[in-house]
Every structure is written in structure tokens, then in C-alpha cells.
């Protein structure tokens, strides 16, 4: 069905999804952090949205959205912190692989798939926030290990919550609009 002149790189839809995605995730990160009660620790709804976009549009969109939204958010505070920006992009990339098994546009969503998605998101969060981001801070910024792991573990936990609860709900809601078991008839 897809025909015609294709150029290499992203599809037009992926470009638009990345653009709209960056705008939304940036705004969620910048203006809607939900306080958890623990000082300086918030639940970042942006990560849930990154996970959602990744699961629909795949790793490239996930990574690009996470990278630029995080960068814009840091810039809007006056201070880019590259190790975390890169860690976020890697998270977006990993979570984008859920597109492969969720196949939201063509197949129904099952409990099993949701479980797989959550397994993937927990692993991705642990790797990115629990390992990559702190290691980056130690190697690149030469910060003491105790401090960066504390920050890393906090981020891991809050992001697992954000993606696990909000991300899962977004995916389920979207899936309902996509796959119809039966054809549409007026009655």
C-alpha cells in the first residue's frame, strides 16, 4: 500500500510525532511535575508520555522525543545536564521496542502484552536511571557515587511509577480506538 518516493531516515509521520511529542513532553516536564511528598522528588508525567509515543511510533521517535524534550526542559532552567539527557534518550529508545510486540495499530491489546510492556519499562528504567545516568555523572562530571546513585534510584522509582500507572493507562486507552474486532455497521 505504501508507495512512491521514500527517502531514507524518518517517515513523515515519525517527524510529526516527534515534533508534537517534544512539545507535549517538554510541557509536562516543565509545568506538571507531581510532588511525591519526598523533598525535591517529583513524578514526571513526561516519561509516561515518552513511553506512550515510543510504544506507538518506535525507538527512533522515543529517543528523539526524550532527548529534545529533556534538553529543552534543562535549557529552560538555564543548565543542560548532558548525562541525564542522554540517559533519557536511551530510555526512549529502549521503550520504543515495545512497538514490536504491542503492535497497537493492528492487533488487540492483551494482558500479556501489558505485562511485557511493564517488564520492559522496569528494565529500561533501572538500566537508564539506576545505572547509565549515575555512571555518567561519576565518569563525566566526577561526582561522588553515593550522591548520584541516590538521585538515580529515586528517579528509577518515580519513573517506574509514572510509566507503570499513567503510561499503561494511556496505552490501553489508545488501543481501544485502534483495533476493532468487528467491522463497523450502522444499526
Amino acid at each position: 500500500m505504501k508507495s512512491g518516493k521514500r527517502t531514507k531516515g524518518l517517515s513523515v509521520e515519525a517527524v510529526v510525532a516527534t515534533g508534537v511529542g517534544i512539545a507535549i513532553v517538554f510541557l509536562l516536564k516543565r509545568f506538571l511535575p507531581i510532588p511525591t511528598g519526598v523533598p525535591n522528588t517529583t513524578i514526571d508525567l513526561g516519561e509516561a508520555f515518552i513511553a506512550f509515543l515510543g510504544s506507538v511510533f518506535g525507538p527512533a521517535v522515543g529517543a528523539l522525543v526524550a532527548f529534545f524534550a529533556h534538553l529543552f526542559n534543562d535549557l529552560s532552567w538555564g543548565d543542560p545536564w548532558w548525562t541525564w539527557i542522554v540517559a533519557d534518550a536511551i530510555f526512549g529508545f529502549f521503550i520504543g521496542f515495545s512497538q514490536r510486540f504491542l503492535k497497537l495499530k493492528t492487533t488487540p491489546l492483551t494482558k500479556k502484552k501489558l505485562f511485557q510492556f511493564n517488564l520492559l519499562q522496569v528494565i529500561a528504567n533501572v538500566i537508564c536511571w539506576g545505572i547509565i545516568a549515575p555512571l555518567g555523572d561519576i565518569l563525566v562530571y566526577s561526582q561522588p557515587a553515593g550522591k548520584v546513585f541516590l538521585q538515580g534510584i529515586t528517579a528509577t522509582v518515580t519513573d517506574i511509577l509514572s510509566v507503570g500507572i499513567v503510561g499503561t493507562l494511556l496505552i490501553s486507552a489508545y488501543a481501544k480506538t485502534q483495533t476493532q474486532k468487528k467491522r463497523l455497521t450502522k444499526d
Binding site: 531516515g9 515534533g19 508534537v20 512539545a23 528523539l64 529534545f68
Partner: peptide, 10 residues
């Protein structure tokens, strides 16, 4: 394409 995605986001 990436540059344009950034433009779209703005």
C-alpha cells in the same frame, strides 16, 4: 527531518 521535528515542536 530531525531539524524540522524540532521546528514543529516549537
Amino acid at each position: 527531518k530531525i531539524s524540522y521535528a524540532v521546528e514543529l515542536s516549537l
